[in-house]
Design a protein around this nucleic acid. Structure first.
Lengths: 258, 258
DNA sequence: ACATTGTGTGCAGCATTCGCACAATAGCCG
DNA sequence: CGGCTATTGTGCGAATGCTGCACACAATGT
């Protein structure tokens, strides 16, 4: 900011404002100005102006001294979802397979070192745990979706991404060693699917398969279910279902523009 | 812009940048810089800086000369959805009722003179038409959701909102006269529900009921279905279902913070 | 080939933004 | 309870970053 000749094609005020908008995540639904300033690494006055601008634009609401997102941010996502025809090409496919498999099916890709959920289908009796939705971030290291995404990258790139991600310990079974995680990802790449057991949530097994897009940033579909009585049979059934789902998405050109 | 003392608490560059982001909607999934400038009413150079900043921040992607939204915008919406626990409190309720009623159920509110879809049941189901998703805008004047939302406003406010909205003619049956539309809204307010027939899409009947939130900006749930053989019976069944759904959402305090 | 529409860049001037410093408020502990 | 500190909200001068014009060039399409 002070020092260098900064790119004159970039509006720094705008970038700072966006940073303000981006600090609102699941962990911190509403924040005070000072907290926003801290999180976005900006001067309080600067953050304040950004936040007030967002309030005026209708993306943020002010309750006393707390600021929180308004539903209008959904409209931004809506532009993306409609542009890519999620409502017609993606959601129905996920729903149908979810119904057949009797588990929820999730479409995801990589974003900023985390797994970004793009779409999700739920069936009524599915066990809902964290309440993730489209737009949620979930961890990279200990989910089948994350591992499968890593598998979709060239291995040195995967290592780089993983190095930047944090590796919390969700359960006893969570692998902690990056090398071990990469090893699992490599295995997933060869197999063409990924299964993780109880690393993110105890007693839950995750399944994921790639939606092949040669040379592009990887996209995957996955499911999770409680460990059943016949793990092998479950795995086979679910993986087969997911693979069908992935093939259908690919064929519908539903993910070509991601 | 030039003359008047503009609010020193508002960052105009940021506001302009946001305007750039907001021009991306369903109708125009990808645009050239010049088009963005036109739509956002900004100088090309200004719009260009805004767009390039968005590219750098990862919200926009540049393919040749076309710019389009990236999946990262979903993350912004994700913050809102998780903050309001849509995944746990809203989606399951919609899904369950949709399953029971065998129609799609949608939660919506008012935003910028249009109907903003907040959430939609993801149950597998028949007639999918436009492929709307959460974050989609649909018209105010000719949908049951829109009319019910108008009904939730004080009547002079409803008139003002409607006056600013455009009233296209989707079908032969679309009412064109604002007064007539307000009349229907008033009727909906008294009845506590709204039914529209073929005004948005031929052969499709829409149903909506309010999720009462005294004194706050209205929120509604609704469905649509092809006209069946027994319109009266269908209406009764669906309205009853929607009312149950609305009651449940209210009770779960799912919409308290909207 | 021409007309049209889109894109990149330099620049000068002034509006805009920065970040400090002060005021006001909340929180804490003896 | 009262005095203390930590945290928050805001006004203001200075300088920086931004705007929008104009020009040159590239890519369409007729």
């Amino acid at each position: 900011m002070t020092v260098s000749e900064q790119d004159r094609n970039i509006s720094s005020s705008f970038a700072k404002g966006l940073a303000v908008l981006a600090v609102f995540d699941a962990a911190t639904p509403s924040m005070t100005l000072a907290e926003i300033a801290r999180r976005s690494g900006q001067d309080r006055a600067t953050a304040r102006r950004g936040a007030l601008t967002l309030v005026q634009a209708g993306y943020l609401r002010q309750d006393g001294r707390m600021l929180s997102l308004t539903p209008r941010v959904l409209a931004l996502a809506g532009g993306f979802l409609q542009a890519n025809q999620f409502g017609r090409k993606v959601q129905p496919v996920l729903n149908r397979h979810a119904r057949q498999m009797e588990v929820e099916v999730t479409l995801a890709m990589l974003d900023q070192g985390r797994v970004l959920l793009l779409a999700q289908s739920t069936v009524e009796h599915s066990h809902i745990t964290y309440g993730f939705t489209a737009g949620s971030h979930i961890p990279l290291a200990h989910t089948s979706l994350g591992r499968m995404l890593l598998a979709g990258l060239p291995s040195e790139e995967a290592a780089a991404v993983l190095a930047d991600a944090d590796i919390p310990r969700h359960t006893e079974q969570s692998l902690q060693d990056p090398a071990a995680i990469l090893e699992r990802a490599a295995q997933a790449r060869e197999q063409g699917f990924c299964i993780t057991g109880s690393e993110f949530e105890a007693g839950i097994t995750g399944y994921a398969v790639p939606v092949a897009r040669p040379g592009r940033t990887p996209v995957v579909v996955g499911s999770s279910a409680p460990r059943g009585l016949h793990p092998e049979a479950d795995a086979e059934r679910l993986l087969r279902g997911l693979q069908l789902c992935a093939a259908e998405l690919r064929q519908a050109e539903a993910v070509d523009h991601l």
